[in-house]
Design a binder for these strands. Structure first.
Length: 280
DNA sequence: CACGAAAACCGTCAGCGGTT
DNA sequence: AACCGCTGACGGTTTTCGTG
């Protein structure tokens, strides 16, 4: 049922409301209803073919957005692996570039300088300061990485070279993310050599060396799986976000159509009165 | 306030279509 | 064929809300 409606919506983008072309819109709606009614005629194979072509929410919403002014479009994702990192153009040649779970890019220059850039922001504004300390409390071999989390949830995951992992400190990890955001507490991360079991969401960067032993192969398989799960996790989040946006868009359209329907009914009644005056 | 139901959210898996 | 992204389905967890 859901896909049925979705496909209808996709195949029959309703015209621009701002044009005020009500006749066109009503015709479109009528056409939609008609096609819905004739669906029973389609043989099962064809129907399955149609229903299986599931346009993404981004496509659907962009269709709607192009018709309805004021509805923001979902930007087309640039293929992240295209190699050109946005907003990192004038820095020293980095030795490593990593991407966080929230899409930010972290570049570690040869001098140890670290830059974070947001793909969604413009130019230098996307860069965030990041401080590193190696002295004091941290356990041997650990590097404290602190930065001001920009995202609301404040959770970040890093890729770090040299078979190291980034682990969020327990204090900030356990505290509710919104508290950290509102109190200004900076989440603290440690770069460590991986222990036996990786915490959820923490990935180990693959060293580009060759993998020989069964243990290494198993680790590689595990790493690939973790990477796939992480990507799918993010994809699921994004998919749900689009779906919610899509549903909101539909709801707003329902509200608009109800108002217009009401106006049309009133207009029809007025015309009826004009065309058939009382004979009394 | 305690409790249970409902709603919302999340991670994972499976399957599909598109791309290389 | 392998890989990848998208999304429905499922089950678990968390949050919200109504009731006693």
């Amino acid at each position: 049922m859901w896909w049925h409606q979705r496909n209808l919506c996709f195949r029959h983008p309703i015209e621009d409301y701002s044009s005020g072309d009500l006749e066109k819109e009503v015709a479109t709606i009528a056409e939609t209803d008609e096609s819905a009614g004739s669906e029973g005629v389609i043989d099962s194979h064809k129907r399955r073919e149609i229903l299986s072509r599931r346009p993404s929410y981004r496509k659907i919403l962009n269709e709607l957005s192009s018709d309805v002014p004021g509805v923001p479009k979902i930007e087309e994702e640039k293929s992240g692996e295209e190699g050109t990192l946005p907003h990192i153009t004038t820095m020293a040649v980095p030795t490593s570039i990593y991407q966080t779970s929230t899409g930010q890019y972290i570049a570690i220059a040869q001098g140890g300088a670290i830059q974070i850039s947001n793909p969604g922001s413009d130019g230098v504004q996307g860069l965030q300061a990041l401080t590193m300390t190696n002295s004091g409390a941290p356990p041997p071999g650990a590097t404290i990485v602190q930065y001001a989390a920009q995202s609301a949830d404040g959770t970040q995951q890093f890729f770090v070279p040299g078979s190291q992992v980034v682990v969020q400190d327990e204090e900030t990890e356990l505290a509710p993310s919104h508290m950290a955001a509102t109190t200004g507490d900076m989440p603290t991360y440690q770069i460590r050599a991986p222990t036996t079991a990786l915490p959820q969401g923490v990935m180990m960067a693959a060293s580009p060396g060759s993998l020989h032993s069964p243990q290494q192969l198993a680790e590689e398989a595990t790493r690939k799986r973790e990477l796939r799960l992480m990507k799918n996790r993010e994809a699921a989040k994004e998919c749900r976000r689009r779906k919610k946006e899509y549903v909101k868009c539909l709801e707003s359209r329902v509200a608009v159509l109800e108002v217009q329907n009401k106006k049309l009914i009133e207009e029809l009644e007025t015309l009826k009165d004009i065309c058939s005056p009382k004979t009394d």
